[in-house]
Design a protein around this nucleic acid. Structure first.
Length: 351
DNA sequence: AACGCTACCAACCGCATTAGC
DNA sequence: TGCTAATGCGGTTGGTAGCGT
């Protein structure tokens, strides 16, 4: 069943490429350009299948590929885009110049995914998963190593640029309560590195209270009613951090490329869609594709016809896509398309 | 030194989509 | 319109380097 592997023919090499093979491929493409991958290997003197040549070129040899570690901004963008597009690596790569879909996919699976899990965030849905979080270790570590009254929770959470806001607030609540009333944790902070059993027990008790408090404020798994409860307020620390850390917002590029301002959206009928940058409209299309909005009655037009003064407070975090069912996902996407795009454009006022 | 484990990432596989006839 | 080849894409595999024991 299925198509036979393209490299099954005798004599075709598989596995890692040698520098000589790379050079042959580079030389050929520089002379003749890329394309016609099936005939390329023979013409270039390579004992490889065309598919292998194409992958080698697009994922490694292309001159515009950026090598090296991902920057903070790139990582932020990946998380943001992944929350919107899912595993559409090529769509994500299209918005990260110099990075390939393969590279982004690998980086996601080996770095970001694990980090999100350690933060208690489901990397698939970008929702908070307290069962994934080793909260006890996190807080115990912090409480045993207080360096000042201003705890660096960003660092505590793994130097994450995109802090799980709920976790941040919960931890801050715990720490501020502890600072205001050291007795809340019994004997206060133990000086030794290893907390006493009594301390751990009291910490666990306090954690339970915090978790109960948190569970009441967290979005439930039925976001169709209100997928973004009070999140504008909750996300303020995140937004501030993003802006101050590197003055970076991945949407800004899109907005700048589209040469848009909020005024472009009010009134809606004045929007000249043809003037929009293709990358911007493609993003909308990708999101629509992911959300299946074409069948839901939403379109590019409906997005742009939404008043900029969104009635629903939204955040720019990638960690709030709470859509474990189709209905929930549709609801999220509907709100995203109706409100978040215009809201995102508000950052143009800060530029 | 040898072994096992883990992380990383290039490369492969196979299905989906597009293009050309 | 249907077929086939070409290309795109996402999931997975396997080699290897680094580290700890």
């Amino acid at each position: 069943m299925g198509r036979a592997p393209c490299c099954d023919k005798d004599g075709l090499k598989k596995g890692p490429w040698t520098p000589e093979e790379d050079q042959k491929l580079i030389d050929y493409i520089q002379k003749h350009g890329q394309g016609s991958w099936r005939t390329l290997p023979k013409k270039a003197g390579l004992a490889r299948c065309g598919k292998s040549c194409r992958l080698r070129w697009t994922n490694y040899l292309r001159p515009d590929i950026k090598r090296g570690r991902f920057s903070f901004e790139e990582e932020e963008a990946i998380i943001q885009l992944h929350s919107l597009l899912g595993n559409k690596w090529s769509a994500i790569a299209a918005r990260l110049p110099g990075r390939t879909d393969n590279e982004i996919k690998n980086y996601w699976n080996t770095h970001i995914r694990k980090r999100l899990l350690s933060m208690g965030i489901d990397p698939v849905t970008h929702t908070h998963r307290l069962d994934l979080l080793d909260l006890s270790a996190l807080l115990t570590s912090s409480l045993c190593n207080p360096t000042s009254s201003q705890f660096d929770l960003s660092g505590l959470l793994g130097l994450e640029p995109l802090v799980n806001s709920e976790l941040l607030m919960m931890a801050q609540n715990l720490l501020s309560a502890q600072c205001q009333n050291p007795n809340i944790l019994g004997q206060g902070l133990p000086e030794q590195q290893h907390p006493t059993p009594q301390f751990q027990e009291q910490l666990a008790s306090f954690q339970t209270q915090q978790l109960q408090h948190l569970s009441q404020r967290l979005p439930t798994c039925t976001p169709s009613n209100d997928p973004f409860p009070d999140e504008a307020r909750l996300m303020q620390p995140n937004v501030g951090q993003l802006h101050t850390s590197a003055d970076f917002n991945p949407w800004q590029d899109i907005i700048m490329q589209a040469n848009l301002s909020q005024n472009d959206f009010v009134p809606a009928t004045s929007v000249n869609y043809e003037s929009l940058d293709p990358s911007f409209t493609q993003l909308i299309a990708d999101i629509s594709d992911v959300c299946g909005t074409s069948s839901q009655g939403y379109s590019l037009t409906s997005v742009f016809s939404t008043p900029a003064s969104s009635p629903t407070p939204l955040n720019s975090s990638s960690t709030h896509l709470n859509s474990s069912t189709e209905d929930e996902r549709e609801s999220y996407c509907s709100n995203l398309l109706k409100y978040q795009i215009p809201d995102l454009l508000d950052v143009s006022n800060c530029m």
